[in-house]
Design a protein around this nucleic acid. Structure first.
Lengths: 210, 210
DNA sequence: TGGTACACGTGACCC
DNA sequence: TGGGTCACGTGTACC
């Protein structure tokens, strides 16, 4: 405010001619009044301007404030640090989300329950985000000996199932098997072994009549 | 720069007395010189100050720039909008992450592979985020008939396993079973059935000699 | 005392 | 033309 007034005074003074005016003629006086009202208009505009600018600043600073409350572990509270931390957080969160979305081996949270396909299917796929891990997905007729058959297929290529996800519904089965320690060369072997297991489990268990 | 110079000139002029100085005494002159050098110092300081301020502005504006590149779907590029969009994004991402982390039934991506416990364990727990879904977790000795025994336990309470996650390692087994359509009243029944299945599978399968 | 951070009012620019 | 945005240099406060 102080600042503003000083600017205003110096401005009016400059308009007046920049030096003291002891006695002035009538024409000079009217001209001076005209100038003064012009200056007045200008001042009003300036005031409007500065108020608008203040509103803008407040809007922006409000955003900074909410950012400060949102961000955790914010040590330095100055604007630059807030922005820097924000950028860091956004990047981290984005990475986290994309990690979580592709979710370990492609079983995204969107398909927690993926039902067996009606048609028989078998696919092997290397996990992009885990070295030496292969994901085998199969859909086939459900039968009592199926799991044993699959186990034997696994054993035949000397691999270890690290994780399995199995859904049986309506006489159909869908199994996803994460297999560790399978060389490129033995992927084909595993595939054919699994194919056999899917279609004719080596021996069928008797259905227990409980 | 223009701006700066005008300020400088007007300041010096004011120091000089705010009006033209045609002829001045010797003492006045030395005083003037002193004033001038003082003004000079002040000007230098002001320059330093304004440069520092410029650096600060640039630092902040740089951050805005990176934010603008990071944020997708940014229509309005002004500072307030950038901040607003940033806040929105951070909030959304945070929500997304927490959603993904609790991950459907508590199998967070952090324990994709959760190994069987050495001690026998059995717990049933209602899934908070899915109505009517119960998650049964068990760790026990692995045996050939285990899965059939568990199946029978499930059948005995007329429920359906919607999803299963099974890990066998070192002769121990850890199974997580998501069970649908289990009333509060039958949770105890399922638990005791599973307990029995874990410890003495109704009949043991012969180990196939392949 | 110098360095740093902020709010301020202002001129310039753009719809 | 006016409303909005920006960069600028400055005054001020804190350490």
């Amino acid at each position: 405010m102080q600042h503003f007034r000083s600017h205003y005074n110096s401005e009016v003074q400059m308009i007046r001619g920049g030096f003291p005016q002891p006695l002035i003629s009538r024409t000079y006086q009217t001209s001076f009044l005209k100038q003064r009202s012009k200056a007045e208009i200008k001042v009003v505009a300036a005031k409007k301007h500065s108020e608008a600018e203040k509103r803008r600043r407040m809007r922006i600073n409000g955003q900074y404030e909410t950012l400060r409350t949102i961000l955790p572990n914010l040590i330095k509270k100055d604007k630059a640090s807030v922005l820097a931390e924000t950028i860091k957080q956004v990047k981290e969160l984005k990475k986290k989300v994309s990690k979580l979305e592709q979710d370990s081996c492609g079983n995204s949270s969107k398909d927690v329950v993926k039902f067996p396909s009606g048609a028989d299917r078998l696919s092997l796929e290397k996990c992009s985000n885990e070295e030496g891990l292969v994901k085998a997905t199969l859909s086939c007729e459900d039968s009592q000996g199926l799991m044993s058959a699959i186990s034997r297929a696994m054993g035949s290529v000397k691999t270890k199932v690290v994780k399995a996800e199995i859904v049986s519904v309506g006489g159909r089965n869908r199994s996803v098997l994460w297999v560790q320690g399978l060389g490129n060369d033995r992927m084909g072997m595993l595939k054919s072994s699994l194919k056999i297991a899917m279609h004719k489990p080596a021996f069928k268990m008797r259905r227990s009549t409980q």
